[in-house]
Nucleic acid binder design. Structure first.
Length: 602
DNA sequence: TAGCACGACTCAGAAAGGTGGTG
DNA sequence: CCACCACCTTTCTGAGTCGTGCT
């Protein structure tokens, strides 16, 4: 309790300091904001193309084409920790794009309080529009959200408004929500052109003579902090970020101009970092960064390094496993805990979970597991030594899994749980730092997170080998590929909220209905036969669909499995890469598509 | 020198936006 | 031809990981 109070006081003081630094004068609108029609956008787009070329002019004389086409062939892979301290030699960009200034609502659109329309101050009205956008979302029912939002909403009101508005329940945002919806519909079409224009202005940078895309050139708009799960700060207001809050990182000769009438918080030329701009989030108080796109050369190099590091684990894995087997039998409690923890990270794919501040949602990982998160079964459904994990993991996703473990692990876990309360730490002698230090002593650059990359990639490769060994037809191959990926995603516990299964089951029900209708109306038998065939096909693919629906496939594809495995598989089976990677993945993994041939093995 | 806070990065699911099929 | 819907892709930004530097 004391700790929690301390954290809250510390947070309040820091937040006050950050907010005090934030400037309040309105930012000048850029010319982009004045676009009302598609024609306007086209005209501006043409001039922007010229301007954008100007922004990215580079002093680097080296031919960028040669660098781009074969950097991955020339690259000698560096192990983690020994990466170059100098990340770039020349860096030029146009600075971030600020969201448009808030435009007041028309006079006939008002928040109603207790049935009476209220004309709010500009700041309070803007906060009301943020809330109105969330109408219908379950998060609005959350008491923490309501309390945080209403407290900060009232702080934006004028004293006379504050005297009247005392209860969020009596605030009616419906008219504002309807107005915003109408506004959105009327602006369809213009948005696309504006986006293209903005991308030309702000979305590109020039790094070491290479034109690259920027991943997030937009400053996050002000709004309501939502967080994940039961975040204690949900509902707090994210303040507007202004040029005076933003630090720019670039070459000394290429400082982008701040918007008219404004200046940057600071400009630095730090070659040891890859961010282009940063600012502090007014709720979490952490830095937010403007960074290069994942398709960029620099990010590609980092990706390659990541996968090469994971690939090296193959040569060390026997030694690593031998080491933690020995730890299980150690008389030293810390070593036993360390051995079991690494086993769980390696074999159950748990994240390590670093220490967290009190002001985050209550989520766990290996080093933060509590006694209450585990159930031990000597025997369960014919399996010996089963551990049931039940906790809330990263992003507040549920982790619920029963795993048959090694007998030594089981007995160690039982001893760690003895004489402890449910809320006590399972690994009370262990810290993340100790664990990673030990891993580094076994293999240079090895940390806990590498196991996820290693295991997911190994699993994909073996699943692909096994499932596609005797297949030749494109449909069968692609289906098997999807299942292999789903296996890897399931292993990583990547969850998707939108269930494709429900639509699959709906399709089956629809066919069943159509068949019975067809039978009743005695329609032609050809139609009936066709429907029956469709139904059989749907039903036979249900179990595959069940697997694929329960997981989010993209996360493991994007982050964990070595793309060269997929590329090699495609080349071996003559499957076009576009059928398994979408456009974004193709450009992100450009290096893998060029580098890997059919014989590549992870 | 240990422990902690923090900076810089990777990883993550949800929401928004786009597309193509169907009635 | 259009409205609607389902599915897929992109964008957004919150949440972890881990090294570094300060006290």
């Amino acid at each position: 309790m004391e700790d929690s109070c301390g954290a809250i006081i510390h947070y309040s003081l820091r937040r006050a300091a950050v907010l005090q630094q934030q400037h309040v004068e309105p930012i000048e609108e850029k010319s982009i904001e004045s676009i009302e029609s598609i024609e306007d956008a086209d005209v501006l787009l043409e001039s922007a193309e010229e301007e954008s070329l100007e922004i990215i002019q580079c002093r680097d004389t080296e031919s960028s084409d040669t660098i781009r086409s074969n950097w991955h062939e020339q690259l000698s892979v560096s192990v983690a920790g020994s990466e170059d301290k100098i990340k770039w030699h020349s860096l030029q960009h146009g600075g971030p794009l600020f969201p448009p200034r808030y435009k007041r609502l028309p006079d006939n659109v008002r928040m109603c309080y207790n049935g009476q329309p209220m004309k709010l101050s500009t700041a309070a009205e803007e906060a009301a529009t943020w809330y109105a956008k969330l109408l219908g979302r379950p998060v609005l029912q959350n008491a923490i959200f309501q309390a945080n939002f209403f407290r900060e909403f009232r702080m934006l009101m004028r004293p006379n408004e504050r005297r009247i508005i005392k209860d969020l329940e009596l605030c009616d945002f419906e008219r504002i929500a309807q107005h915003l919806q109408r506004q959105k519909m009327s602006q369809r079409g213009v948005g696309q052109h504006r986006k293209l224009l903005e991308q030309h202005h702000f979305g590109l940078c020039c790094i070491d003579g290479e034109l690259e895309m920027i991943a997030n050139y937009r400053i996050e708009p002000a709004g309501i902090f939502l967080g994940r799960g039961k975040h204690p700060l949900m509902g707090a207001l994210k303040h507007r970020i202004r040029p005076e809050d933003v630090t720019i990182n670039c070459s000394p000769y290429a400082v982008p101009a701040a918007p008219a009438g404004h200046h940057w918080k600071a400009v630095q030329h730090d070659q040891s970092v890859v961010w282009l701009a940063r600012w502090r989030d007014s709720v979490t108080l952490g830095y937010k960064y403007m960074q290069l796109s994942s398709a960029s050369r620099l990010q590609g190099k980092r990706e390659l390094n990541k996968f090469e590091l994971a690939r090296r684990v193959s040569s060390y894995i026997d030694r690593i496993r031998q080491s933690y087997w020995e730890d299980w039998k150690s008389p030293n409690l810390m070593q036993r805990q360390r051995g079991v923890a690494i086993y769980l990270i390696d074999r159950v794919m748990l994240r390590v979970c670093s220490d967290k501040s009190e002001l985050t949602a209550d989520c766990e990982g290996c080093c933060r597991l509590r006694v209450e998160h585990l159930n031990l079964f000597m025997e369960l459904q014919g399996n010996a030594y089963v551990v049931e994990f039940n906790f809330v993991g990263k992003d507040c996703t549920k982790y619920r899994r029963q795993v048959a473990v090694n007998q030594h692990v089981f007995e160690n876990l039982r001893s760690f749980m003895q004489r402890k309360l449910p809320q006590d730490q399972l690994f009370d002698q262990l810290t993340v730092k100790m664990l990673n230090q030990h891993l580094r002593s076994l293999m240079q650059g090895l940390t806990a997170k590498v196991f996820r990359t290693y295991n997911a990639s190994r699993l994909l490769q073996s699943s692909l080998d096994e499932l596609t060994r005797n297949l030749t037809s494109p449909e069968e191959l692609l289906n098997a590929f999807a299942i292999a990926h789903a296996n890897a995603a399931k292993f990583c516990n990547h969850q998707g909220a939108q269930s494709k299964l429900s639509s699959h089951k709906r399709a089956i029900r629809a066919k069943q209905l159509a068949i019975s209708k067809c039978r009743r109306s005695r329609a032609n038998t050809c139609r009936l036969l066709q429907l029956q065939q469709d139904l059989d096909l749907l039903q036979s693919s249900l179990s595959d669909a069940e697997l694929r629906s329960s997981v989010a496939l993209s996360t493991s594809k994007v982050n964990y499995v070595d793309p060269r495995i997929t590329v090699a598989w495609c080349k071996k089976h003559k499957v076009p890469i576009e059928q398994v990677f979408d456009a974004a993945l193709c450009s992100k993994f450009d290096w893998a598509i060029t580098a890997a041939d059919a014989s590549f093995r992870f």
